[in-house]
Design a protein around this nucleic acid. Sequence first.
DNA 1: TGGCTTTGCTTAAACGATTAAGCTAATTAT
DNA 2: ATAATTAGCTTAATCGTTTAAGCAAAGCCA
Lengths: 345, 345
Amino acid sequence: MKPKKTSLSDIAKQVGVSTALVSYVMSGKEKEARVGMDVAQKIRDVAHELNYQPNLLAKSLRDGRTHTIGLIIADISNPFFANIAREVEDESRKNGYTVIIGSSDENADKAWDLMNVLVNRQVDGFIIVSAEGSEKLVLHLQTLNIPFVLLDRHFPQFETDFVVTDNARASYDACRHLLENGYRRIGFVAYKSGMFHISERIRGYREAMLDRGINPEADWLKEVQFEATEIEIRTAIDALVQGELPIDAVIFSTYGLAVNGLKYINELRLRVPDDLGIVSFGQAEVFDLYYCPISFMRQPIDVLGKHAVDLLMERLQNPGGARQHITIDARLVARESSRKKQEMQ
Amino acid sequence: MKPKKTSLSDIAKQVGVSTALVSYVMSGKEKEARVGMDVAQKIRDVAHELNYQPNLLAKSLRDGRTHTIGLIIADISNPFFANIAREVEDESRKNGYTVIIGSSDENADKAWDLMNVLVNRQVDGFIIVSAEGSEKLVLHLQTLNIPFVLLDRHFPQFETDFVVTDNARASYDACRHLLENGYRRIGFVAYKSGMFHISERIRGYREAMLDRGINPEADWLKEVQFEATEIEIRTAIDALVQGELPIDAVIFSTYGLAVNGLKYINELRLRVPDDLGIVSFGQAEVFDLYYCPISFMRQPIDVLGKHAVDLLMERLQNPGGARQHITIDARLVARESSRKKQEMQ
DNA sequence: TGGCTTTGCTTAAACGATTAAGCTAATTAT
DNA sequence: ATAATTAGCTTAATCGTTTAAGCAAAGCCA
């Protein structure tokens, strides 16, 4: 039924030599291995004729490297991660590596299972956007001595390679921008999470407010559950805009929060930015096409992805080298949603 | 340096038996292989103690199945494909398969290269969103006897498994909806392509117009190059809205066209739907959050993805079975962008 | 002529798992 | 008591590749 693929020994048999010779020729080692010119040519001819394609499984098994990397992200259907995946894919292919992507849904258990599957498939290394609670995963990879690079999020308590944006600074810039444009009562919506990148974003917001001499009300910070974003975000926004001190601007610390938040803001018929100024993290076509284009902190996804792959490649070459920490600045893209406030007397 | 992973023979050595016994126990065949209860337990204990993880490479090499499928799509950073990828990933994992995703950028050569890499990695089968001109790829997989399912697009001239939406019908429905709501001069924007799914969409549009007794002007159909979408779409829209017979509605036959089109429509300060009614293919948050929510044809991505995987699984079981053609209907999600036209006297 | 190097190839082990076949000792049947 | 069965293991081939080591013949030098 299935026309067996041609292997080294098929060629060897037809040419009348050992598989060793064929292997040498096919991997361009004919010089070192002193293969006769005529035989080499014959081998190439037959290989071509039989349409030989090497079996990468066998090769990998033999030399312990699969030239495959595992990419664990939160969710491939989120544009931020999809774009990251795309960068990682392209950059990896340039380096001769294939990527296997898995979505963890921000769930540490899922991430753990994924990692195990990929480890068993013998990936050479990982690029990981950590879910909350995946310290165990990180430690496990360390004891297995499998190279990995943390992307977008990292654990300050562990000494690992990572590539992240400067979240505190990005948040600070977002907030300062709103302040400069006349907004004063600024809310901040984040996921409820113990993860470092989240708390950094909150810290940046706080500092910007304090530096401006404003004490951010505790009520202005809303933390919503990832698993129940749609519902909780409504409650959060209701509270923010209807409280004693209704906010005049809000920062969404994540793409998913912004999308859900904007939907509800539309429902409430709040006008952006007159009723509510907005700056968001993340990026996507949504922000361009909203009736009032949304200002956002642009994370240089291409740079993040490229650095992550390059760093991993370096680590694969030199597993013992010093861990590297790469921090990249996000850049504010200011648009209508945060334009200078008209003082309304 | 690297603490070698534990293999069957490590366990065998420690327990003092052959690797065969260990293999039987680890793969749950201890009954058939008549392994002694006490020895079996000992093996399990040691396996656990040494944290044994099977090497899937070796297993795959041995029995010729990798439990891996290749997914070739146009671009993972396009939400339509990202969502497909997500479905395929989840459904495959349920079946014990791992997915390797590659983006072809609608380029047949890239798709060809990708396929070759994946074939060499011995994927068991493929799910493919074909790029234009990839007939060669399809034929090649057929001669290699590697199972594959075409997704979203298919080649009517080849007898293959496929899962697609009924594009002619979707287009017909989109157009009829606009007609029913009072629009008459309806434009259609598509990619310039010889691919079947595109011409089907055009056909559906034409038929809906003709059935209504309207002869669609040739100028109302605009075909833009995939590689130069941003520029060409401006020219196309300019022509559509400024011609002798300016259109009063437009159908975007693809997500990417809609996004670029809407951007330009915004720039032109055309009001949707008063100046221009809109229905689009594709789906994404963009359509929800546009100032005037965009009507679109919802393709049931979850169903598409699930069917594609299930069909491939079936084909892997039974390579010789009759090819299956699965066609799924898109459903109109009607919103503001195509609301009933106010007759303006 | 005898020893040394070079050329051109083959042999065989290794990667880690699977599994048909075979072997031995104990048990059961006759 | 002897033959037949069964339980409980081992052996070894296999998947396709790589590569160190070895071997024979030819070439070179004195």
